[in-house]
Design a protein around this nucleic acid. Structure first.
Lengths: 252, 252
DNA sequence: ACCTGAACACCGTTCAAGT
DNA sequence: ACCTGAACACCGTTCAAGT
């Protein structure tokens, strides 16, 4: 009893449901679903293809390789980032809002942050984000030199924290016991307490401060340090020479 | 013509050269050699085993798994980090020296930085480093709360930059053309220049500043921002309430 | 206790062949 | 142009068996 393809189903079903054509967008969407469901390690060419009802080789017509797929997914995530319009007098708070937004978007898709670290993101959504960050810096009165370097530095921070988060998240999914934030902090406290006091007296004494705060608190702390530093160096220019006007005037 | 194992070599060669026993240290050393020669992706259980003249299964008697091996390699790298003894009046410069030293050690072994991001490093050498960082912070007059949070933040920065470096390094090894720093900056400049001016006017105008400086300059810039921020928040304590003395006095 | 070969269940990517 | 099955050259880890 031969069983020709599709003979068991009416033609319209094959056309409308089964025969959805592959496309870059569909592949990126499937990748993001897989990322949400099973983490970045599960976003393999094979798994994405399987989710679309095909084999891995079919994806290569729409996507250069796995790295390319990951970059496309990253730019889709950058679409969720909101960077406010410049209000010059509160540039510091606006930069904080923007960096929080980058962090939240990356954190909403655990695992994608590493991709942001691995590439200078050049997709349209990432560029829009940089464009608007630059405007806030310049409106705030930072030098052009500062502004140019700040965009990178300010983006690196939420990315790095999100990478750390994702690793903990991944680990927590694999085994629920022992890996909750509380459990880890508890064991770390015990560990620090058990260290030889002659070798690590400061770590022992400072253990409560080393373990203080949750992830949110620690993120906000780093953010406060960064923006305070940017403010302090607001007028920074590279390698001011000894002919710098202020210095010369200062000597009068 | 059968060819029994070792029949072509004198017995003493087999005993003295071939039969070196496996040990955790030997495995870690082989891992670091492989890392230097071929990058972190080449540090597979199979390749490390092959370098030691055995099969992958043999390593599992000395090392829990691949992650464990990577952590052991990381602590070996932390042995190269130098953190100076505290001199209270120049704590800022000392923190910079320490962070540079972390960065340099990680950069000397491209690829290992990711391991530092994936774990709270708890090996003896990493702990010694934290211990000494803490001492500098406290000697400099930072609050205990600040000092505790600073160690993490200050370590995250060189680690994140080293992760980025390693990815570029890896890419440069694969194909020498198109991936040198100069070539990438050149193409990025072209790309920014080709962007539609109505959508990305600031990026277009700021292109030279976005691409300014080499890796070293950019690292030093971030370091300056960080330490300036730490200095500005020197007396920081978590969530100061409205009963904060200075605020009350300020109203008089 | 330490080491081994073989096997299991995976990868990314290529390629000739189909439509 | 797009899609496919099959193959290639790899992985990490487990396990029974050896010493």
């Amino acid at each position: 009893m031969p069983h020709p393809k599709g003979a068991w189903a009416p033609e319209w079903a094959g056309d409308r449901v089964q025969r959805r054509r592959l496309s870059t967008d569909a592949i990126v969407a499937a990748g993001l679903e897989l990322l949400a469901a099973e983490g970045i390690d599960a976003v393999t060419m094979r798994a994405v293809a399987a989710r679309l009802g095909t084999g891995p080789a079919s994806l290569y017509a729409h996507v250069r390789d796995k790295q390319d797929l990951h970059e496309l997914m990253l730019d889709a995530v950058f679409a969720e980032v909101h960077v406010p319009d410049p209000e010059p007098e509160r540039w510091q708070e606006q930069l904080k809002e923007a960096i929080r937004s980058v962090y939240e978007a990356l954190a909403r898709h655990p695992g994608i942050a590493m991709v942001n670290m691995a590439h200078i993101p050049l997709g349209p959504n990432a560029l829009r984000c940089s464009e608007r960050l630059l405007r806030i810096c310049l409106a705030g009165g930072l030098t052009e030199e500062m502004s140019g370097l700040c965009v990178d530095l300010l983006t690196l921070y939420p990315t790095a924290v999100a990478v750390e988060d994702a690793i903990w998240y991944e680990r927590g999914k694999r085994s629920d016991w022992m890996n909750s934030e509380q459990a880890v902090i508890g064991r770390l406290g015990d560990y620090f307490g058990s260290l030889p006091g002659e070798v690590y007296p400061t770590i022992r004494a400072m253990a409560p401060f080393l373990l203080a705060g949750n992830g949110q608190d620690r993120f906000e702390f780093g953010l406060a340090v960064l923006i305070a530093g940017v403010d302090a160096l607001k007028s920074w220019r590279p390698q001011p020479s000894s002919s710098d006007p202020e210095r010369v005037v200062g000597r009068h």
